[in-house]
Amino acid sequence: MTKYTSVSIPLTLHKRLEKIIAKKTGFKSVSDYVTYVLREVVAMHELKDTPEPFTSTDLDEIKARLQALGYL
């Protein structure tokens, strides 16, 4: 099950975030909001530098099949 840890952020930032989530519905706490935003950022970083999951041999074989089937 998910475990939690604390991350320190300046109290002033915490207060600004509290104001934002007070206006916006959907977030129960600053922690929820920060988790949401960080997941968005992390996913963006993870997307970069993902290699294509096939080799050049795969490429030739698969292109031949796709051509034979009329996809290409």
């Binding site: 294509e52 999951p53 795969d58 698969i62 292109k63 099949r65 796709l66 089937l69 996809y71 290409l72």
Partner: peptide, 17 residues
């Protein structure tokens, strides 16, 4: 069978297109 493509195949298909 001829209508079944794996993710590897669709990825190559999309990029060839």
């Amino acid at each position: 069978a001829d209508y079944t493509l794996s993710p590897k195949e669709t990825r190559i298909l999309f990029s060839e297109k």
